[in-house]
Amino acid sequence: MLLRIEHLSYTYMKGTPFEKKALDDVSFEIDKGDFVGIIGHTGCGKSTLVQHFNGLLKPDEGNIFLNEQCINNSNIKALRKSVGFVFQYPEHQLFESTVYKDIAFGLKNEKLSKEEEQQRVIQAANAVGFDLSLLENSIYDLSGGQKRRAAIAGVIVMNPQILVLDEPAAGLDPLGRDEILDFAVKLRKEYGITIILVSHSMEDVAKYANKVIVMNEGKVEMIGSPGKVFEDEDRLRKIGLGVPQIATLFKKLSVAYPQYNIDREIFTVEEATRFLLRLLGGENK
């Protein structure tokens, strides 16, 4: 078990009139190599939750275990190295004069030799598909997509075990969004990094995650595989979330045609195509 959350509760501005319970008895586990999608509407506690993973917030109650070690009061520095955090609009956090310096910034305390540093920066830049010929450029000369990649490289360079991505695709067009999320898949596959994706997009979570955590009013509302979670469309709608179009379609079909044994856990276009072709016996070109 890579990350284990036990009975986590957190209250903002405790003891003031603005007191607000943001997390209420939250428990779950994340395995090494998982691609976890955390969804929920604004104010459901998902950002508060992930900020506990690298010690930005400390639990009021409950425990967090990383690699079976309780991290509530442990060495914050080591923790922050293990859990990389990419905030929303990460390109706003670029500040160095060149891309190289910005990516290398986190390594300053590592006491690496010039060669080692260079190797790590290049590896990180490659991991997110950043064009190496632009490393000596000013961060202001980059396009939006390149900036976002450079910013993520600056997190990857620390070799985290877990990468938390908070709405990484906000404001990007469909192509840019796919690029960023495909890199996350690559990082998971090639570098074994566990990915935690905080998102509003059901389609993205459906396409990429193997485990979905639905948050509502500070509690875990649902947890499980995307298929299992999207099956309960009514419950998701009740808490202000939608499901991918395909999930709705297959639910409607399964109700209308019980005789066809329609799989209610289908939620991506690819699965839907395969299923319907099998059912309708289309020629496979």
Partner: peptide, 8 residues
């Protein structure tokens, strides 16, 4: 689209 491309 996918279905049509497969002759349906």
């Amino acid at each position: 689209d996918n279905l049509r491309n497969n002759g349906i």
